[in-house]
Amino acid sequence: MRFQSFGVLLITGIVTCMELVYAQSHADVKKLYTDLFTDYKKEILPTADQSKPLEVGVTFYMASFNSFNEVEETISLTAAVGMNWVDPALMWNPSLYGNLYVTIINPKDLWLPQIFLTNRVDSMNPVGDDTMFFPTIVFTGEVIYSPGGILKAKCPTDISKFPFDSQTCTLQLMPWGFVQSNLLLSSNFDKAQLDFFSAHSDWNLLEYSTSVVK
């Protein structure tokens, strides 16, 4: 993504929007939860064929540009990383559960990927580590999970044209600890999504894009 204060900031990232349909009764939700998670193992990568990688779609949602420190060469953003994948153990027939097509569950009960901002400067924790974000499950087994927060990343600075400078920054996101044979990321869009974006008074967003490096 690119800003201007004349500044330019390039961001790589990802997330997903969802429409919710609720169950007919509390009993339907309770029965579904019991049936899905009685033998569910959140410690196991959710693929039917463990010899193939899990494919995770990613969408980067830019909410606001908070600051750019040219001396420290850092950028601060409020953003979310939306992820979606299919867990074959979480499929169900809606007609057996009061036509329940979508449900929201506590994240502690589910296998979830952890996405790290590798050029983060304030910690080496996964995105959204300080807040509980509730995932959504669709009857097809699709899981939608969108952690977010304030991301502070390293960004090399060029101040040769100050105060009319432009800066290009890249946020490097990855599922730390996984190899491609276990987990593959794909970009749902070729640009960061600005559905929730609030403009900054000093910097203008000029350009933004997302891509996957393999």
Rank of each mutant, 00 (worst) to 15 (best):
G7K: 12
L9F: 11
I11A: 13
I11F: 09
G13F: 09
G13E: 05
V15G: 11
M18K: 15
E19A: 11
E19Y: 04
V29L: 13
K31C: 00
L32P: 00
Y33Q: 04
D35V: 01
L36S: 03
T38K: 07
Y40D: 09
Y40K: 07
E43H: 05
E43W: 02
E43V: 02
I44W: 03
D49W: 05
S51Q: 04
G57Y: 14
G57M: 11
V58N: 07
T59F: 10
F60I: 08
S64A: 14
S64I: 05
F65A: 13
F65D: 14
N66Q: 12
N69K: 12
E70L: 15
V71Q: 13
V71N: 12
T74A: 09
L77Y: 14
A79T: 04
W85I: 03
W85Q: 08
V86S: 00
D87W: 03
A89T: 04
W92D: 02
N93H: 09
N93K: 13
P94F: 08
S95D: 11
S95K: 09
G98M: 04
G98D: 06
N99M: 11
L100V: 04
L100M: 12
V102G: 08
T103H: 08
T103S: 07
I105R: 09
I105W: 06
I105P: 05
L110A: 06
Q114V: 00
F116E: 02
L117V: 14
N119E: 03
S123Y: 13
V127R: 09
G128F: 10
G128A: 11
P135N: 10
T136W: 01
I137H: 01
I144R: 02
S146R: 03
P147A: 06
P147V: 03
G148Q: 07
I150W: 00
T157Y: 08
D158E: 14
D158R: 12
S160A: 12
S160C: 08
K161V: 08
F162H: 13
T168L: 04
L171S: 04
P175Y: 00
P175K: 01
W176Y: 10
W176E: 06
Q180N: 07
S181E: 15
S181F: 05
L184D: 01
S187E: 10
N188V: 02
K191M: 05
Q193K: 11
Q193W: 04
D195T: 02
S201R: 08
W203D: 12
W203A: 13
L205F: 08
L206C: 07
L206H: 11
V213R: 15
